[in-house]
């Protein structure tokens, strides 16, 4: 797998650290209750197909990316800066 970092260009998968589904960007309110927090921290859609994930360009530019990827074919469809994906 190769991921095209918006800053560095196409790079080997080994430069990146995989975090998890991109739900991490939608942090709930601290007082939202344990149901909401359980949903956020632990429960996952876990799709077989296209999904949005957080990857960290660890040995590159240190940017956090939102990568759109197919979990069946390993095809990378898109990679954008997490800061822009959130905005």
């Amino acid at each position: 797998m190769r991921i095209t970092c918006p800053i560095c260009g196409e790079r080997d998968r080994r430069e990146f650290y995989y975090k998890s589904a991109a739900v991490a960007l939608e942090r709930p309110d601290p007082e939202a209750g344990d149901g909401v927090w359980n949903d956020y921290l632990h429960l996952r859609e876990n799709p077989a197909g296209v999904t949005r994930e957080l990857w960290y360009h660890e040995t590159g530019c240190s940017a956090w990316l939102v990568v759109t990827r197919n979990t069946v074919s390993h095809e990378i469809l898109d990679a954008v800066l997490a800061s822009e994906a959130r905005a």
């Binding site: 429960l43 996952r44 876990n46």
Partner: peptide
């Protein structure tokens, strides 16, 4: 590994990533 999809048929989200 397919637990997420089958559980979704019962309207569940489960703490599993494949």
């Amino acid at each position: 590994g397919r637990s997420g999809q089958v559980a979704a048929m019962a309207g569940m989200r489960i703490p599993v990533e494949s």
